[in-house]
Simulated scan of single mutants.
Amino acid sequence: MNPYRKFVIVFLSLVFLILGSTASFIFFIDPMWTFGHAHTYNDHQLLIDERQQKSNHMYFQPFHHRTLLIGSSRSTYINQDDFIDMDVYNFAVSDMSIREYESFIDSAVKANKEPFETIIIGVDFFKSSLQESAEAKNLDNYLETLHEPFYRYKNLISFDLLKYAWKNFNKSRHNVILEERNYNRNNVAFAKRIDEVELENVVAEKVERFRQVFYGDTYEYNPDYRAIFHQLQVKNPDTDFIIFTTPISTPLFEALVEKGRLPDYERWLRDLVAEFGEVQHFMYPNSVTDDISHYFDGHHFYPEIGTLIANKISGHDEDVPADFGVVLTNENLDEFLNVIREKFSAK
């Protein structure tokens, strides 16, 4: 055989062997959630890009649910299976803006092939500011990506995804959670545990950041806040909306009050109650938020608190602390706000 030809054959054989092995391993672990198989060696999935991963999951696997949950990273820690007698898909992602809600709902409805009976939205007070909600955002780029020709198969020869696949493999093999958020193959998020000393430092740092950045002098309530939610109801007339507020730790709530944001907090709740009639409210000092061990940074709660929220919303609250969660309506909103004002004016 011609030496040159032999070299080409050997070289191409090695290339195909490497590409084939890479593609097989990435497919086996499936770090971008485009194929859907589950096993012992891929049950710990790293957070790469939730918007893309969850969009992939909806579009490339069988998808049909009666209820959709959206919200920021706080809401990602709510197990969709903890809503009793409710068929829920958790489409919450990191740093979701209220300006993204419409595109998230539209894309999920399209994947579902029919409107959802119920849409649950986890709302965060700090996202009510112009700083956090003025910019128009949507899912268009992510949806365009997943519809690219051969998108799923091009991922199989990505060196970056090979690295993620290897990390997923090792974490699954050793059954460890080392990041703030890992997922299993059923779209359920888990969080790493931190010790008491580290927690106190992290919470202090996070409270100061919120005091300066999110609750500080640059905070300005978005005057279009209610109108954005009104548009969601107009576009989804056959869907019931459940709105809940995400529970931040009491030290973080105290920082909100100290920075003079209590009037904005009141306006926020009034807008939500006026638009939806009622709000499942958890963001106020109570026995759950008083205990900072329920959080890993002061505003992201651990999944077990997400379970309490899900149980409360779905009406199975036998194991939920009595003071955790109140349904705010036009009838009791003033009374609730008076209690909050009195609590902090007495300090």
Rank of each mutant, 00 (worst) to 15 (best):
N2F: 10
D319T: 09
T34V: 02
D271M: 09
E304R: 12
E132Y: 01
V10S: 06
I119Y: 01
E266K: 05
S73T: 04
D264S: 08
F210R: 04
L199S: 01
P3M: 07
D195N: 15
H281S: 08
Y41G: 07
R99F: 11
D106L: 10
S75E: 10
A310P: 05
R51C: 01
Y284M: 05
G298T: 02
Y302D: 13
M58I: 00
F63V: 00
E50S: 08
D317K: 08
V15N: 05
K343G: 12
K154W: 10
K206R: 14
R341D: 13
E278T: 11
Y215P: 08
G306C: 09
E220V: 14
S72M: 04
I177G: 07
R226A: 13
V320W: 03
D264C: 05
E196I: 13
D217G: 06
L69P: 01
G306T: 15
V320T: 15
N175W: 11
V257E: 02
R185Q: 08
D297G: 10
I242R: 10
Y59E: 01
F159I: 15
E342N: 13
R185H: 05
D43H: 12
Y302T: 14
F150N: 14
D334M: 03
P247H: 09
D271P: 10
A23L: 00
H299D: 15
Q280T: 11
R99M: 09
K312Q: 11
I48H: 07
R267Y: 14
L146K: 00
Y219W: 04
G277I: 06
V176G: 06
E220G: 01
R51E: 04
R99H: 10
G20T: 03
Y89D: 05
D240I: 04
H37L: 02
F229Q: 06
I242H: 05
D81Y: 13
L162V: 06
F27G: 11
T289E: 06
Y164I: 03
N236W: 11
I157E: 09
S133W: 01
M283D: 14
E254F: 13
V188W: 09
E304Y: 15
P3Y: 10
E278N: 15
V8Y: 13
